[in-house]
Computed example of a mutant assay.
Amino acid sequence: MRSLHTIALSMLDLVAVREGGTVADALAIALRTAQHAEHLGFTRYWLAEHHNMAGIASSATAVLVGHIAGGTSRIRVGSGGVMLPNHAPLVVAEAFGTLAELYPGRIDLGLGRAPGTDGPTMRALRRDRPETEDDFPRDVAELQRLLGDPQPGQRLIAMPGAGTHVPIWLLGSSLFSAQLAAERGLPFAFASHFAPRLLLQAIDLYRARFRPSATLAQPHVAIGVPLIAAPTDAEAEYLASSTYQRVLGILTGDRRRLQPPVPDFWAQVDGQARSVIGDFLAAAVVGGPETVRAGLQRLADLTGADEFVLVSDVYDPALRLRSLDIAAAAMRADQPPEALPA
């Protein structure tokens, strides 16, 4: 059985705009959450790029990374991820190179292959050229060159960016990015917080084909974990109804701001909706302290993950912080007393 205290704990934030709140409120909540995660000893805090989506305020991802890094002091901050089809690699290298100079040793660059938006928004981003299977690997390689040490005769130099060696992660919900991460010797994060179906297959492929690189000697797997924790299972289920409503909105095309929790949510939806939401959130851990610990242990044993990246969409910001407290306590419950933080 995998010891939970050996697994790194991190967080992914979509910067949800709550019903009745503003974008400014959402940004302030994100910073307070990151500061709390740092206090709890989380390894990293990632922001996800999305566009033209009601209730999500993380579209200007690099700007947010700088905001969070500036308001914290130790925790790593990065993108989970930047959707590379939307951007020229040089622009990404310059942005994250600048961040690395401002916050040395604390910036991550997670890259996604999907556009993270719809067709009209892609055209508005000036990325209406059809993507091919070769584009993403080529763009990743270009970013590696731009963030690495300049080579003799290299004409295109990212300034800032060159020589910063910002760690690149590949993110994905399919086998494509798992294989590419293995070939390039890069850390891999699977998007099991919303698409868990291929989780085990992708991890197995990544580990089997991993080639050590100058930056990573052994495979490193992070998995997305939707997590809602509370003092009791009943309260956690009640709080999780905000997440259930969000998922239902995604699946039905009725996207809204993050909604307050509602009692008896499951009694209000039909069997098909229950099944689809359940598939979407198959990796979720929802419950009181013992349920949370058992759920995290099950994921650890199932995947052998090196890192859990929590996604916790709780409507009340204070209860969201409490949810992280419970998760952190569950992760270190088997840690030797002398190793616990004072």
Score class of each variant (00 low, 15 high):
residue 2 R to F: 00
residue 5 H to S: 02
residue 12 L to D: 04
residue 18 R to L: 12
residue 18 R to I: 04
residue 22 T to Y: 09
residue 25 D to T: 10
residue 29 I to V: 15
residue 35 Q to I: 04
residue 36 H to N: 05
residue 37 A to Q: 08
residue 40 L to K: 13
residue 43 T to I: 00
residue 44 R to W: 10
residue 44 R to D: 06
residue 45 Y to D: 07
residue 50 H to I: 08
residue 51 H to L: 11
residue 62 A to V: 05
residue 63 V to T: 15
residue 66 G to F: 14
residue 69 A to P: 02
residue 69 A to K: 12
residue 78 G to M: 13
residue 80 G to I: 08
residue 81 G to C: 15
residue 85 P to E: 03
residue 89 P to D: 03
residue 90 L to G: 07
residue 90 L to T: 03
residue 91 V to P: 03
residue 97 G to P: 09
residue 101 E to N: 10
residue 102 L to D: 02
residue 104 P to Y: 07
residue 105 G to A: 08
residue 110 G to F: 10
residue 110 G to V: 08
residue 113 R to G: 09
residue 115 P to F: 01
residue 116 G to T: 04
residue 122 M to V: 11
residue 125 L to Q: 08
residue 127 R to G: 12
residue 131 E to K: 00
residue 132 T to D: 00
residue 133 E to I: 10
residue 137 P to S: 09
residue 140 V to C: 09
residue 141 A to E: 13
residue 143 L to E: 02
residue 144 Q to L: 13
residue 144 Q to V: 08
residue 146 L to N: 04
residue 147 L to P: 05
residue 150 P to C: 10
residue 150 P to F: 13
residue 151 Q to K: 14
residue 155 R to Q: 14
residue 156 L to W: 00
residue 159 M to A: 14
residue 160 P to A: 06
residue 162 A to V: 01
residue 162 A to C: 03
residue 165 H to L: 00
residue 165 H to D: 12
residue 166 V to M: 03
residue 167 P to C: 12
residue 168 I to T: 04
residue 168 I to Q: 01
residue 168 I to S: 01
residue 169 W to C: 02
residue 171 L to D: 02
residue 182 A to N: 04
residue 182 A to G: 03
residue 185 G to N: 03
residue 186 L to H: 02
residue 189 A to V: 12
residue 197 R to K: 14
residue 199 L to Y: 04
residue 199 L to C: 03
residue 201 Q to F: 00
residue 201 Q to A: 11
residue 206 Y to R: 03
residue 207 R to N: 08
residue 209 R to Q: 15
residue 209 R to Y: 07
residue 209 R to P: 08
residue 210 F to V: 05
residue 211 R to C: 04
residue 211 R to D: 00
residue 214 A to D: 14
residue 214 A to G: 11
residue 215 T to L: 00
residue 215 T to G: 09
residue 215 T to M: 01
residue 216 L to R: 11
residue 216 L to G: 05
residue 217 A to Y: 04
residue 218 Q to C: 01
residue 219 P to K: 04
residue 222 A to D: 10
residue 223 I to C: 09
residue 232 T to Y: 14
residue 233 D to K: 11
residue 236 A to K: 11
residue 236 A to I: 13
residue 237 E to S: 12
residue 240 A to F: 15
residue 242 S to H: 10
residue 245 Q to I: 05
residue 246 R to L: 15
residue 248 L to H: 15
residue 252 T to Q: 13
residue 252 T to G: 14
residue 255 R to D: 12
residue 256 R to W: 03
residue 260 P to T: 01
residue 260 P to G: 03
residue 261 P to G: 02
residue 263 P to L: 10
residue 264 D to Q: 14
residue 265 F to I: 07
residue 267 A to F: 06
residue 268 Q to D: 10
residue 270 D to Y: 10
residue 271 G to Q: 14
residue 275 S to N: 12
residue 277 I to P: 05
residue 277 I to H: 01
residue 278 G to R: 13
residue 280 F to G: 01
residue 281 L to F: 05
residue 285 V to Y: 11
residue 285 V to I: 12
residue 287 G to V: 09
residue 290 E to L: 12
residue 294 A to H: 04
residue 295 G to N: 05
residue 298 R to N: 06
residue 304 G to F: 05
residue 305 A to Q: 06
residue 309 V to W: 09
residue 310 L to D: 04
residue 314 V to L: 10
residue 314 V to I: 14
residue 315 Y to C: 02
residue 317 P to H: 10
residue 319 L to T: 09
residue 320 R to M: 11
residue 320 R to H: 06
residue 331 M to D: 02
residue 331 M to T: 07
residue 334 D to Y: 07
residue 335 Q to W: 12
residue 337 P to S: 08
